[in-house]
Nucleic acid binder design. Structure first.
Lengths: 111, 111
DNA sequence: CAAAAGGTTTGATGGTCATCAAACTATTTT
DNA sequence: AAAATAGTTTGATGACCATCAAACCTTTTG
């Protein structure tokens, strides 16, 4: 059970976070992470419908920007949002983005 | 005194706004707009130190994403943040970004 | 009218990025 | 030991983007 490297809280950069959250696929991934806090990468990747190498790239971008942290358990990776770190570094930002992301693609409107 | 076209409030897209705010130069521009609500484009462009055609491109990106509105007065353009529209569409998002941008910038501590 | 001022538009250029496929690594299961 | 699982890495490709320079447009000023 080890953790993949990510930037310390005080070195998280605004432009990098904004960049990470500016892609539709990554926006959808963080929306899913917000709803299901402990989904493995594979499940998330399948939900958004991209190739696994593409998903891997997106998870790396999110992690290196400081948005997520990744925990390796055997051959499975769990990704979760760095809520407290982001709240301390950029208060209200993640909450506002998540709220907007949920409003933009409501789960309840699925047939 | 006419206004350049921009997307109506309900058609502003999250990914487009995030994209617009993911560039360091545009982030600096909106930070300046937050501090000085009525600066003409030329002054802002000079503050961030880019070529005027580059500045023009950035102002267009901000306007077309829904972040700003532009008013033409003679040969001068005034750009301002669409605060109410953004607050209604994505509550708290612009505030959080502006707060983060000000905190990140060593120049002045508050608007 | 001519010149200046404030921007926009149009290339051209270099860089970054999202995507997929294929090969690879590491762990677990059979 | 072999196969399956979960992902990463490494190209390759095509798209988009930030930048500047030069020409252009519109409005104001001399």
């Amino acid at each position: 059970m080890r953790e993949l490297p990510h930037p310390p809280r005080d070195e998280i950069e605004l432009a990098a976070v904004m960049q990470a959250l500016a892609d539709p696929v990554r926006l959808e991934l963080v929306r899913l992470m917000d709803s299901d806090a402990a989904a493995p990468c594979a499940a998330l990747a399948e939900s958004v419908g991209v190739h696994k190498s593409t998903a891997s790239h997106h998870f790396r971008t999110l992690r290196e920007s400081g948005v997520t942290t990744t925990i390796v358990d055997g051959r499975i990776r769990f990704v979760r949002l760095r809520r407290e770190a982001l709240q301390e570094r950029f208060p209200g930002l993640l909450d506002a983005v998540l709220r907007a992301a949920h409003a933009n693609s409501p789960v309840s409107s699925r047939p």
